[in-house]
Simulated scan of single mutants.
Amino acid sequence: MLFSEIDTTYLANTIKGLQGKKLILWGAGRRLKGFVEQYCGDGKLLPTPYGVCDSTREIAEKTLWGIPVLPFKDVQAMLPKDTVIIITAGLLELQARVVASELYYFPLFHCRTFEVYDYLQKNLDQCDRAIGLLADPVSKKTYRGCIENILCGRLWDQSLFSASPYFGNDINERLDASGQLVFAGAFNGKHLDRALENNPAIRIAAFEPSKTWSAYLREKFKAAPQVTIHNKILWSENTLLSFDDDMSNSGLDAHVTTDAANSTYQHEGVAIDDYIEGKVSMIALDVEGSEQRVVQGAHRTIERDRPKLCLCLYHNLDDYFRIPVIISERYGYRLHVKHHSTISAIETVLYAV
């Protein structure tokens, strides 16, 4: 069960067929620039787009990243046989508008489909190597199924769903109170509540870099002395980082950014090896694409304590395939994958036990 066995003929033919079509990018948020720069134009996977539009706001500029801005009504008036639309927004931001906007007759793709296709074409051996490291056939089926769903545009798939992320499942049934749980990406505390319910004796070092959410968590768990809230970014080293708290979206996409000018604030990053004292029995990371960095900063802790690891894979394409290799080769863990959402492209977790 390998990634090289996935039939990508349909997408290959779609890409070839884009020549002579009007390629429209729908969504002018922060995804647009990176997608255009990496995938669109001469010598790249996709041709230069005909235009960009956005149905959620008026765009004042006449062009964005060299692409003409079109009124959304002009896109709606185009002929589906001559047009291909790629959504360059979050996975769920515009899909609900397809019916209301009467775009269901158009060939419509999400940008993630082309990102995955391009990554597989360039890194197929590495991807096959990663799936070969998984310890059981269900993990392999789940892992490949998530990627295949994105390639095929299958947003929902109930068949891959598994309840109870990180603990309380058949891989990690009960939290080990002989050490502490390091949980990064604590957000609104729902998984901290679950941890205390799973084992009231567990000590939790919870990391939440958002100032708003960390203040909320300190108030929420003020009567739980076994829970410590750290308003810091877990990272590979102790350093100052630019952070976008994404509070306009309730912090759902808060992340470290290299774009300091457009970040919310500068924030302290710390490494587990330098910051956490005492034995660690589990590390669970949902840190919006910083998982590889955090693992680097926990090297000594992992070697010393052999904590169970629960690492989100879905934020960056490279994480899907690099993290299993890193964890297997450096530390020799047994690897499993579970998918904790009916949405194909989120909540895929690597378990190392």
Rank of each mutant, 00 (worst) to 15 (best):
Phe109Val: 03
Val99Trp: 00
Pro107Arg: 10
Cys146Gln: 10
Cys111Ser: 14
Asp128Trp: 15
Pro137Thr: 11
Gln95Pro: 00
Gln126Ala: 13
Ala96Met: 02
Phe109Asn: 06
Glu115Val: 15
Lys81Pro: 00
Ala135Ser: 15
Leu133Thr: 02
Glu102Phe: 05
Gly90Cys: 05
Lys81Cys: 04
Gln126His: 15
Lys81His: 04
Ala89Pro: 00
Pro80Ile: 04
Asp118Pro: 10
Ser139Cys: 12
Ser101Val: 01
Ile86Glu: 02
Arg97Glu: 14
Leu94Asp: 00
Phe106Asp: 07
Cys146Met: 12
Thr88Pro: 08
Tyr143Thr: 09
Phe109Pro: 03
Tyr143Phe: 14
Tyr105Pro: 02
Ile150Glu: 08
Tyr119Glu: 12
Thr113Pro: 00
Thr113Gly: 01
Val138Met: 08
Ile131Lys: 02
Pro137Ala: 13
Leu124Ser: 12
Ser101Glu: 15
Gly132Lys: 03
Gly132Glu: 11
Tyr119Ile: 14
Cys111Asn: 14
Ile131Val: 15
Leu124Tyr: 06
Gly132Met: 12
Leu91Gln: 07
Asp125Ala: 14
Gln126Asp: 12
Gly132Asn: 09
Val138Asn: 08
Lys140Thr: 09
Gly90Phe: 05
Glu93Leu: 09
Ala89Lys: 04
Ala96Phe: 07
Pro80Thr: 09
Thr83Glu: 05
Ile150Ser: 04
Arg112Gln: 13
Tyr117Ile: 13
Asn149Lys: 02
Cys111Phe: 15
Cys146Tyr: 07
Ile147Met: 10
Leu92Arg: 08
Arg129His: 13
Ala89Trp: 04
Glu102Leu: 08
Gly145Lys: 02
Phe106Ser: 01
Ile131Pro: 04
Asp128Ser: 12
Leu124Pro: 01
His110Thr: 03
Leu92His: 10
Val98Lys: 02
Leu103Arg: 04
Tyr105Cys: 09
Thr88Asp: 10
Arg112His: 13
Gln126Val: 15
Leu92Ser: 09
Val99Tyr: 01
Leu108His: 01
Gly90Ile: 09
Gly132Cys: 07
Leu94Phe: 09
His110Asp: 12
Ala130Pro: 03
Gln95Cys: 06
Leu94Ser: 02
Ile86Tyr: 02
Lys141Arg: 11
Pro137Leu: 10
